[in-house]
Amino acid sequence: MSDVVWNIGYGHFLVLAAVLFLIGVAGVLLRRNALIVLMSVELMLNAANVTLLAFSRMWGDLSAHTFALIVIAVAAAEAAVGLAIVVAVFRGRRNVDVDRLTTLRH
């Protein structure tokens, strides 16, 4: 037990990333506010980055840093477009509840 607490290894980082990813998944699935859903997506992208960097350090390979940088840029673009969509939807219907956005339902 004390070994797990005091000797931090790659497993700890991977488990932390998995926990963050699961919290993000729970946010996407459980919350209905579109803003919270977007924040949860950001959390999941960050968890993926933690995994990338842990394995990068483990194998001594720096190319994962490039990949993580690109993930951050994609996350920024996603946040910008996602928030623009949220604002546009809010203009039209005065709420951003994802369960009530059913206009496109077949």
Binding site: W6, G9, H12, M58
Partner: peptide
Amino acid sequence: TYRHSDLVG
């Protein structure tokens, strides 16, 4: 192939 062992430990 090389990899780093426990880093923070």
